[in-house]
Write a protein that binds this DNA or RNA. Structure first.
Lengths: 296, 296
DNA sequence: ATGGACCGATACCGTGCTTGCATGGCAGCC
DNA sequence: GGCTGCCATGCAAGCACGGTATCGGTCCAT
């Protein structure tokens, strides 16, 4: 034989009442089945759980130990349905969130705060991925939300999270490092350091359009912003970087504003798959559809 | 309906195999009952646990949460029988141990060490009680073992644990405080401080016999050794105390050996009820019957 | 596009467990 | 010694659970 929940419930009732009749009453049962349940339990465990004194019963030491186990099992079983239901409606759960290295500096903290406000009880798991890898992970349901740069495939739902313009990063040794105010891109006569078209396609395309393909092509390539700043610092050229990166002070690098004519904003979007079954995501998505204002 | 262990086992199997057929095979079952088990589970919880994709199944987020709960319940249920059996044969368990205030100084530590060696896995709960209260507690199964002074009621089983003689405690201001070597009780001309016949009947009787009822009667009475030493220190008289108490150095009190003619040993016994159902006690008692040597 | 393989859901039937009723056996109490 | 309270047991009925057969859907290969 094998243990059954009926037996456990019966045992706990008898152990608490120390009286088969009252225990049976509490379980909406008659006394004989209870007797058989306990007997079955004792046969299965090969252990006497009660001392029958003829006048009521008394727990044995082993019975006391088994009582604790039975109580824990039943308590766990008690909370399981509610916990499962909460997970099903998205009240609790886990949101697997990916972000680009660049996006992390500007908006990750604010985004997490917003998620925490809209879906309290939901915890986030963070991964760093470049945008194309995020789209693949979203499609494979390996992540729930991505913080990505455009273009966004049509199959996904998305929301503009952050928009900022680009500034020019120049080495301290560069002539433009000294001045103040805005500069024009045409004033930059030496090399640019460009974004890799694979790792950072969006920034690559925008920068290429801003400064012209011919001049862009001669530069070094990088896909990670810290790498780019290191190259700038080494004096290898100038780079166009999102304004929020200025918060990262790097020794040997100066930032200059760009002329309004040259200004061009880059955007970051939260992105998810509408048919992702994660209820936590569904709840967040619904909340975002109702009120796309990110600061609330 | 209500959750059943069958359903839990079925759910865990399907969740792990992600395939009803294989899961059923693992459970020595055919596929249809499994389908019904999961359906019943989903109906009870009001939650979809699996996404049926037509080609196999996939856990929902809620299903993942419920899987964790189900695993914990089954794991608990797995260990419960063995833990109960161990408690039944005394391999594990709790020994409720009482001791007299006097006994604690001399032998409690050694006794606990011995218990730990003979019945590893058994933990001790300690209470301080005077001997008569211990006998009552032993009879009511409120404690399992007592460290008591004679006489021991016949209904109990017991074992001599410690034997020691008495020494004389005198105030520093007393003439006997200065000498060395043994003294005779007849040299003590002033008052004795005696043991209470209720709280410490055994020591009371022995001391009364040693020094004579008439002289004993005039003294102060105390039942706790620390109290007696405080009275000695205050110069109220001399007292006969067990030798092991000498380890307690009290300022203002000197100890003197007694003449061989006056020497009288007092004993301390471990004592338990043979029909106490606690398996941990039974195991200890059996061990003590086989080998009454306490240092092993 | 169509047949086949795979997989989960459903219908139906048989069996075995569990329950409830009635009763037995045993210990303590007036 | 009869009475009462309590747990154990015998027996018949109900029901829940498992097995067999089959259906309906999807995916894949030809």
């Amino acid at each position: 034989m094998d243990l059954s929940l009926q037996q456990l419930r019966g045992f706990v009732a008898v152990a608490e009442e120390l009286h088969y009749g009252r225990a049976a009453q509490r379980l909406n049962l008659t006394q004989p089945p209870l007797t058989r349940q306990i007997q079955g339990l004792e046969r299965t465990l090969n252990v006497r759980l009660f001392d029958r004194t003829g006048r009521g019963v008394r727990l044995t030491a082993a019975g006391g130990v088994f009582l604790e186990h039975a109580r824990r099992v039943l308590a766990l079983l008690e909370v399981a349905p509610e916990a499962t239901r909460r997970a099903a409606d998205g009240t609790t759960g886990t949101l697997r969130l990916a972000f680009t290295a660049i996006g992390a500096y500007a908006v990750l903290a604010d985004f997490l705060t917003m998620v925490g406000k809209r879906t309290p009880g939901v915890t986030a798991e963070l991964t760093e991925l470049v945008s194309p890898a995020q789209f693949e992970a979203l499609a494979n349901l390996e992540i729930d939300v991505g913080l990505v740069r455009p273009p966004i495939p049509a199959q996904f739902e998305s929301l503009l999270v952050h928009s900022e313009d680009l500034v020019l990063a120049v080495p301290v040794s560069h002539p433009l490092a000294l001045g103040a105010g805005a500069v024009s891109l045409v004033d930059v006569t030496d090399d640019y350091i460009g974004y890799s078209p694979e790792g950072s396609q969006y920034l690559h395309d925008i920068c290429a359009a801003m400064i012209g393909m011919d001049r862009y092509a001669v530069s070094q390539l990088a896909s990670q912003v810290p790498t780019m700043l290191a190259l700038v610092r080494a004096g290898l050229g100038c780079a166009l970087i999102p304004r929020s990166i200025m918060a990262m002070g790097v020794e040997g690098v100066r930032y200059r504003e760009l002329d309004a004519a040259d200004a061009h904003s880059v955007t970051l979007h939260a992105c998810w798959s509408p048919d992702n079954p994660n209820p936590a995501l569904q709840r967040l998505a619904e909340s975002l559809r109702l009120d796309p204002h990110l600061t609330t």
